[in-house]
């Protein structure tokens, strides 16, 4: 019955959408309204971005500049949404037991001592030699690559979101290979929660800083006197980089928090 209703609803909706498809511009048309604006009317804002980004910000990658500068409000609140999702998973799943706290800090100290803890708390004590050794090689490279992506968001594809996800994935790999304890030993729970909040705080703080120079919120050009860049364009470039750092902090910690809570049902012990 449910499937019948679903099929009827899908057929009706699909027919309406396919009927509307005819009004769309041809695929790949460079002069369609979204690409070049209405003929005889206003020019599309993407043309403005393409022509002015390098002059305004000295950032060759148009996507990074539009993301962090022209549409900074959008990205600020998207970052806030990601932080909210991390807090929501924490609130839904996290189980805090007072007795277990001492044991968990003990295992964390063991993990901090530099060795991958090859035994899980389920006591099987399997030595995953191949996985552990491969991880020891891959994880530092993945983290280096993550920082490279964050730092090279200006001249090449990349930025805070991509680099943050890669950094978060490196911690997830650590958790998959050596148990969640070895990953939590490197990025403790209180640390990643603080890091997530600090990311949004850095983003909003850079925006607020420009208010003190009697400019608009998130107008990084106002920081040229503070950063000693000599021109507003380079100040915007550095402002974009600071914002991307904040985004990367939030995304890294929220991605790791999601995996840590989901893979242990909020216990933060044992792991998969």
């Amino acid at each position: 019955m449910q499937k019948l209703f679903a099929t009827i609803a899908v057929i009706i909706t699909g027919a309406i959408l396919l009927n509307a498809v005819e009004d769309f511009p041809r695929f790949g048309d460079p002069h369609s309204p979204p690409n070049s604006g209405v003929s005889g009317g206003s020019v599309s804002s993407s043309v403005h971005y393409l022509q002015n980004t390098y002059l305004d910000t000295r950032v060759p990658n148009v996507v990074t500049a539009v993301l962090a500068d022209y549409r900074g409000y959008d990205t600020l609140f998207e970052t806030a949404v990601i932080l909210t999702a991390g807090i929501a998973v924490f609130a839904i799943l996290r189980v805090v037991r007072r007795k277990d706290e001492e044991e968990s800090t003990g295992s964390e100290e063991k993990a901090c001592s530099g060795e991958f803890s090859t035994s899980d708390s389920d006591g099987e004590g399997r030595h995953r030699v191949v996985v552990g050794t491969a991880c020891r090689v891959v994880v530092p490279l993945a983290q280096l690559f993550g920082f490279y992506i964050i730092a090279h968001g200006h001249p090449s594809p990349g930025g805070g979101f991509q680099g943050g996800v890669v950094l978060g994935t490196s911690f997830i790999l650590l958790a998959l290979a050596g148990g969640l304890g070895s990953a939590l030993g490197r990025l403790r729970e209180d640390m990643y929660l603080r890091l997530a909040c600090l990311g949004v705080f850095i983003y909003a703080g850079i925006g607020l800083l420009s208010l003190f120079f009697r400019r608009n919120f998130l107008d990084y050009g106002a920081l040229s006197g503070l950063l000693q860049t000599g021109g507003e364009e380079m100040a915007r470039s550095h402002g974009i980089f600071g914002v991307e750092l904040g985004v990367a902090m939030t995304v890294t910690s929220v991605m790791f928090a999601l995996f840590a809570n989901l893979s242990t049902r909020g216990e933060l012990k044992g792991g998969l």
């Binding site: 460079p30 002069h31 979204p34 690409n35 070049s36 599309s44 804002s45 993407s46 043309v47 403005h48 971005y49 393409l50 022509q51 002015n52 390098y54 002059l55 148009v62 996507v63 539009v66 993301l67 549409r71 959008d74």
Partner: peptide, 16 residues
């Protein structure tokens, strides 16, 4: 505006 030909670059706005 600098006369960059916008037809040579994909539209960045949907990507963002």
């Amino acid at each position: 505006a600098f006369p960059i030909n916008p037809d040579l670059f994909a539209n960045p706005l949907p990507h963002v």
